[in-house]
Design a protein around this nucleic acid. Structure first.
Length: 844
RNA sequence: GCGGGCGUGGCGGAAUGGUAGACGCAUGGGACUUAAACUCCCUGGGGCGCAAGCCUGUGCGGGUUCGAGUCCCGCCGCCCGCACCA
């Protein structure tokens, strides 16, 4: 009988469902919680999902076989902009669009045979999840974790609506094309910055996280020690001083100007009476709100004509400029420019003809040499390097930047003109969104009482259904009745908050909700005590900072409000970041030379059906716009789920991108068919001790590979075992035993085929319930070892010696070796290095 | 611009500082077949050589080491993130 996944895959899925195999139960076993980042219900699953959920499934099934009670849930990150965009473009309601997509994607996901406990499924737009999230919000508000303050948004003056950063293209609104302005709104914030130090220092404990993610988060939080001090202004009684913060106070004597953010209070005051200042600020505000846009925009400055006095020399006056690259959010919104030792300040000073004065030079330089050094380019050595201060004022002349910064802070504190402070780059988390399809913020605005939290018994505050998206803007704002309510405090008329929550809020606690998805409170303590933390979290590297940092903050907030145990404040014990699925891009050009993209299934041998050759562009992330997408549904229908799973795991290491190729998919399918045949045709015959060795070596290596998230290596080892079985003369029980071991090793990856092989090879029950095999140590060791012999670091020969032969005996054999003799030409060796069990190197 | 990562045959990749290229794909050769497909076997970085073997080779340029794909310094290229995409 040939391999036919279309028959066998549904059969085993049915069997697992009948047995309720994957229901997560709290029992006496140790638990293991594996979670993949849940999907946004865009409408169809894509290969990235297949890869992500297959990896998680390998871990889940592997741990299950190892005797753990496994929690492996699935849900939907269901709020967000695309649903509103769809409503605008095609009509319909975001809710219908979203739940329709969820139904489709669930039906596409199920044939993959993932070991998911579907009874725990939820969507973040479910009324119940909204209710619990609002309860959490109220508890966090009461616990002092939430505040309201002003922040800037992208404002589209034509559509009269707030735009997301991705909706601003080259400074223009994506729909209207109007030049976007920055506008200030009062918004809700989670006070994540209260936890800056804590979130930073706790990174050290996250040993199961990739070092790169911890580094990225540390840099994002951005702890810095610096000097905060004041410049006294000249002839400006309303603003007697300007507060500045610097991480390089040692360069104070190289100061050449003071630069203020366009949003600085002094600038606002100047703009009110000076139209030139106002015009400049207006120009700055046309740059988007993203840090990227601000940092990459050409440096622009405006000389206010005002001056300040240098703190170390009252006769020395510095000009006050307004500069578009100074951020109001960081530090004090004002800096002093030290062009000799800062790339950006140097560019600015050069552009506007401001002085460039070195504060230090390379070791041993005098003042003239140092000034010459920095005239053309800034001198920015590592802070740990020792340099010579030519305009120093604190500490030794020769010292490191670090020591000089400390000395400068001490000098400022001793002389009373400034103080050392620690600052963080991390800003509070603004969660207000002026949009419909999100979790309503459960707060009312009362004329008498001000801003009042909704009463818990009035939750959930649900979205109204009768809304339209024909006009841009927030439908909640213009709904005739929805916002009208009564104040929970005084009972008078009040208006609901019409902003909804950032969807990052939804994804910041879903992992906790999965432990008790139907509880009447956000979490159930008995369940979180058992299931938390997530033992293995898997998702894309693109979430390295925001989602993961917000989740770490949220877990702490949930500990503080009693919704999680103290032990769950770091919710993810281990993190794995997987790479993308890529594909070649096929392009032709239309008569006007514009690119036209073609789906892979429409291209055969580099040509379209009509014979037009296509240009092949190297692999990139699969995207609809480039049409370089392969629909998993077609693959599953054509080859079966196991082929899709196997291909996603083979070849590329999980943390790297994998390129989907038709040839690779076919090869994966061919191999699985070969495995099927091996199990289908078991000849009678004798035992083969070499096959048993191969099988046990495979157990050892596959186990280690899965534990180390090296699924591609596990796959390679299974290929080797299959090759060994194919070549072996063993028959009967000896062969069946090897096949059963292979079935068990393959089960986490290709679970349906593994069940078939297991059954054919005489396995008891289902392989999904079989305990993970243990390698027999006696079968892993061999008595002799092949040692390569290097001469001067190049491999020239090899010898086979008993595994535990003493060094001196090996040396004797090596020196007697013909090849070695030849290279030594009668000379004694200069050096002889024997690395036991590894290599020998002779230096002649 | 800033922060982080990656770079090895024709391709995907393997390699506790210790034989570079495991395993797979593609290619070439052979077996089976009337033929093809399927399947099986062999070959498989580049150069020289009948062969044994020798030279060369892990993005580029330096360095440390008995020994470097791996560690250090400087470049180049690509990818991810930059706070309202999810």
């Amino acid at each position: 009988m040939p391999y036919d996944p279309a028959i066998s895959e549904p059969r085993w899925q049915e069997a697992w469902e009948q047995a309720d195999t994957f229901r997560a139960v709290r029992d006496e076993r140790p638990k293991y919680y594996v979670l993949e980042m849940f999907p946004y219900p865009s409408g169809r699953i894509h290969m990235g999902h297949v890869r992500n959920y297959t990896m998680g499934d390998v871990v889940a099934r592997f741990k299950r076989a190892q005797g753990f009670s496994v929690l492996h849930p699935m849900g939907w990150d269901a709020f967000g902009m695309p649903a509103e965009n769809a409503a605008m473009e095609q009509g319909g309601h975001p809710r219908d669009w979203t739940y329709g997509n969820i139904a489709t994607m669930r039906s596409q996901l199920k044939p993959l045979g993932l070991s998911i406990d579907w009874s725990r499924e939820f969507a973040t737009c479910d009324d119940d999840y909204v209710a619990q999230q609002q309860a959490l919000f109220l508890d966090m508000l009461e616990a002092g974790l939430i505040t309201r303050k002003s922040a800037q948004v992208n404002w589209d003056p034509v559509d009269m609506t707030v735009l997301a950063n991705e909706q601003v293209i080259d400074g223009k609104g994506w729909r209207s094309g109007a030049t976007v302005e920055r506008k200030e709104l009062t918004q809700w914030f989670f006070k994540i910055s209260d936890y800056s130090d804590e979130l930073l220092s706790a990174l050290d404990g996250l040993e199961g996280w990739p070092e790169k993610v911890r580094l990225m988060q540390a840099n994002w939080i951005g702890k810095s020690r610096g000097l905060q001090f004041r410049f006294q202004t000249v002839d400006l009684p309303d603003f007697p001083s300007i507060e500045v913060y610097t991480t390089r106070p040692d360069t104070l004597m190289g100061a050449s100007f003071v630069a203020l953010s366009p949003d600085h209070p002094l600038v606002k005051a100047l703009a009110a009476s000076d139209h030139k200042v106002a015009a400049f600020v207006g120009e700055c505000r046309r740059i988007g709100t993203t840090e990227e846009a601000i940092e990459t925009a050409p440096k622009m400055g405006f000389d206010t004509g005002l001056t300040v006095r240098h703190p170390l020399d009252p006769d020395w006056q510095l000009p006050i400029w307004i500069a578009n690259f100074v951020l109001m959010d960081y530090g004090t919104g004002a800096i002093f420019g030290s062009p000799a030792h800062d790339e950006r300040d140097h560019e600015f000073a050069t552009k506007y003809g401001l002085p460039i004065r070195a504060t230090f030079g390379e070791r041993g330089m005098d003042l003239a040499a140092a000034d010459a050094l920095v005239a053309k380019a800034p001198f920015v050595p590592l802070k740990s390097e020792t340099v010579t201060y030519v305009r120093g004022f604190a500490g030794a002349a020769d010292q490191t930047g670090e020591a000089a910064v400390d000395a400068a802070i001490q000098h400022a504190e001793a002389n009373g003109y400034g103080e050392g402070v620690t600052k963080f780059r991390l800003r509070d988390w603004g969660i207000s969104r002026q949009r419909y399809w999100g979790c309503p913020i459960p707060v009312v605005h009362c004329g008498a009482c001000g801003t009042v939290p909704e009463a818990k018994q009035n939750l959930p505050v649900l979205l109204p259904q009768d809304v339209s998206f024909e006009v841009p803007g927030n439908p909640l704002n213009r709904h005739p009745t929805w916002a009208a309510t009564t104040c929970p405090k005084c009972g008078g008329a009040a208006r609901r908050e019409t902003d909804t929550m950032d969807t990052f809020v939804d994804s910041s606690w879903y992992y906790a909700r999965f432990t008790s998805p139907h509880a009447a409170t956000p979490t159930d303590r008995a369940e979180t005590d058992y299931w938390m933390n997530v033992d293995q979290y898997i998702g894309g590297i693109e979430h390295a900072i925001l989602h993961l940092l917000y989740s770490r903050f949220f877990a702490r907030a949930m500990v503080k409000t009693g919704h999680l145990p103290e032990s769950a404040q770091e919710p993810f014990d281990a993190l794995f970041t997987q790479g993308m699925v890529t594909h070649e891009i096929y392009m032709t050009r239309d008569e006007r030379g514009r690119p036209v993209y073609h789906l892979p299934e429409d291209v055969v041998d580099g040509k379209l059906a009509d014979g037009t050759p296509v240009e092949v562009i190297p692999s990139a992330k699969m995207s609809k716009s480039k049409k370089n997408v392969v629909d998993p549904v077609n693959i599953v229908e054509g080859f079966g789920a196991d082929t899709a799973r196997w291909f996603m795991l083979s070849d590329s290491p999980p943390e790297r991108d994998v390129e989907w190729t038709a040839a690779g998919a076919e090869a994966a399918n061919r191999f699985l068919a070969r495995v099927w045949r091996l199990a289908d045709e078991i000849p009678e015959g004798g035992a083969d001790p070499e096959l048993a060795r191969a099988a046990h070596r495979a157990i050892d290596e596959v186990t280690k590979s899965i534990e180390g998230f090296a699924f591609n290596k596990a796959v390679a080892k299974i290929y080797e075992l299959a090759n060994s079985i194919g070549k072996s003369k063993a028959g009967g029980e000896s062969r069946r035993e090897a096949l059963r071991i292979m079935a068990q090793l393959m089960a986490p990856m290709v679970p349906h085929l593994a069940e078939e092989v297991w059954a054919k090879a005489g396995g008891q029950g289902m392989v999904v319930d079989a305990a993970w095999p243990k390698a027999d140590p006696a079968l892993l060791v061999s008595d002799s070892v092949v040692l390569p012999i290097q001469i001067n670091g190049k491999r020239r020969a090899e010898i086979e010696v008993p595994k535990d032969m003493p060094k001196d005996q090996i040396e004797a054999i090596v020196l007697a070796d013909e090849t070695v003799q030849r290279f030594m030409e009668g000379q004694p060796p200069k050096k002889l290095i024997v690395v036991p069990g590894r290599i020998v190197n002779v230096v002649v």
